[in-house]
Amino acid sequence: MKKNLPIVFVCVLLFALFAVVQVGLSSGFISSYWETNIYLIGINIILAASLNLINGITGEFSLGHAGFMAVGAFAGGVITLNLGLPFLLAIVVGMLAAALAGLLVGLPTLRLRGDYLAIATLGFGEIVRVVMMNIDYVGGAAGLMGIPAVVNWPIIFISVVFTILLIRNFICSSHGRSCLALRENDTAAQMMGINITYYKVMAFVIGAALAGLAGVLYAHYYTIIQPKEFNFLLTFDILVMVMVGGLGSLTGSVVGAVLITVASAFLQSIPELRMVIYAALLIASAVFRPQGLLGAKEVSMNLLRKWGGVLNGSDGSKQAQ
């Protein structure tokens, strides 16, 4: 069993991070361009971590993440823009709507084998796009415009921490253990008395709800959402983050999301090559390191101790706690 870091230490670090960015933003040290990227990193962490819950932890293969995100974004947008209700309600409704979509999609399709599920969920993503385009209430193809821009750093920060805590706790709970068992061998898991459909759907619904959360944040940061944005390429971007970080590793998803978002910002000047590089990364990570940068490893006390030997003394002092 891994030994974890002391909670006080983590809280202090989290608070320090929060404060540093907050001060950076309000003092103007962080330019608005990078402010956007920091928010995008946050949203991408939520997306990558929640896709990882489905693809990495449960061992299913969903390609419908952009669809769930769209459901959340539009549901949230309707709440604040069309109905003028508070943002907090938008988050709740967005997550619930996405969870419901996850349930509707998950119940029939999760009985399918991995690669069929991939195509079925991909199809779901397309269907969501087409349906949104045909609903005038959510703006049709033009989408929603003028959604209140209420998302700020504290909201992003809290959402990211909430997402990671939720998934982390899920994995460590008995539900999560069941999901891991499914991933390793679903027939064996079934024989051990695990209700496979129940757990698959459960993980799928939680993942969808979190994608919905990301959608609500996205909608209330960019203030304009169009159905065509939530296409397969968006799911592909998230998949790259998950794969580069490591299928099954939550830490990996965070690292993957940060790396890919920052890389994307730097690849701005060579956009034609960006997708080529992503695709090559995806192939390379699947072929040479299916376990990703971090594999299924998580950052824990043990790992830090190992690093401590290599790195300088500051890590040593962390060990002392």
């Binding site: 891994k2 974890n4 870091l5 002391p6 909670i7 230490f9 983590v10 670090l13 989290l14 320090a16 991070l17 540093v20 960015v21 950076g24 962080i30 990227n37 920091i38 990193i41 962490i45 990211v160 921490v161 990671i164 805590l165 982390r168 706790n169 460590c172 939550l250 830490t251 965070v254 690292v255 940060v258 920052v262 998580e298 950052v299 824990s300 006390m301």
Partner: peptide, 17 residues
């Protein structure tokens, strides 16, 4: 159980900043 990952979030965010 949430801490290890949270720590990493911190580290990575710091790098990002």
């Amino acid at each position: 159980k949430g801490k290890p990952v949270a720590l990493l979030t911190v580290l990575v965010f710091v790098l990002g900043i």
